[in-house]
């Protein structure tokens, strides 16, 4: 879903850049609450994984492909503010080094994937977690997967809304919305599967590091630690 230069007009691109800059600025201060000595390395790994996974376009039929956006995955693993930063790093490197996603469209892409993708995923995840709290930490991968499925069409509809405001070419909006929603619902299923597997693998090895599992971590045995200052 990387928007190239030229799809949106200059005023819209400036507006999305301002929103993106504000969101990243806020994330830079709020992510401190999510990051400590234990979780900071996982956040680095999440950014690298999102970059790698975004190279792996999977076919979704009729000559179309899709790839992971990674917003829900990152939000559940390292927290939404940190996830916004992870996605922003990936998008900036992709745009500047790999010519993937326009430079003037970087703000648009940050809004679509690092803000809308991440926060839709996180809010859906938190809502679902409230409903099935008793299922505990084992439910986290499936809830993350469902949140991921929802996040992709929402990001696609956000693009449609931006295009309605500042699209360069006159396109019937109903048609655009239907086409974006249709394809990205299918791509969202792939997003859900990858998110389920990736979150599941961290839950299986280090559930204590997973931000979305905080307060859920079931019956971990108490450890006796020595050398911890009182």
């Amino acid at each position: 879903m990387h928007v190239p230069d030229g799809f949106l007009n200059a005023p819209t691109s400036v507006a999305t850049s301002v929103v993106a800059a504000g969101a990243v600025g806020l994330a830079l201060s709020r992510a401190r609450r999510e990051l400590d000595d234990r979780t900071a390395p996982l956040a680095g790994l999440v950014a690298v994984f999102v970059f790698a996974a975004q190279m792996l376009n999977f076919p979704v039929g009729a000559g179309t492909s899709g790839h992971l956006l990674g917003g829900a995955l990152a939000a559940v693993l390292v927290g939404p503010w940190t996830a916004t930063l992870c996605l922003t790093v990936v998008l900036a490197v992709q745009s500047l080094l790999f010519a993937d996603g326009g430079i003037t469209a970087l703000g648009t892409n940050v809004v679509l994937m690092a803000v809308v993708g991440v926060w839709t995923g996180w809010l859906v995840f938190v809502g679902l977690r409230r409903l099935v709290r008793s299922a505990g930490v084992r439910a986290v991968p499936a809830l993350a997967g469902v949140a991921a499925v929802v996040s992709v069409p929402v990001a696609a509809l956000t693009f449609t809304a931006l295009y309605a405001v500042g699209g360069h070419a006159p396109i019937p909006l109903g048609e655009l919305a239907a086409a974006m929603l249709g394809w990205h619902t299918v791509i969202g299923l792939g997003e859900g599967v990858i998110t389920f597997l990736a979150v599941g693998s961290i839950i299986a090895t280090r559930p204590d590091l997973v931000h979305g599992a905080r307060g859920l971590t079931a019956a971990r045995e108490l450890e006796i630690r020595t050398g911890v200052p009182a």
Partner: peptide, 19 residues
């Protein structure tokens, strides 16, 4: 293959607006 956005842009005829 083109991704979802690129495919939609092509089929609706606004892919050319990319610089």
């Amino acid at each position: 293959n083109p991704d979802g956005l690129e495919y939609v842009a092509e089929s609706l005829g606004f892919l050319d607006s990319a610089r």
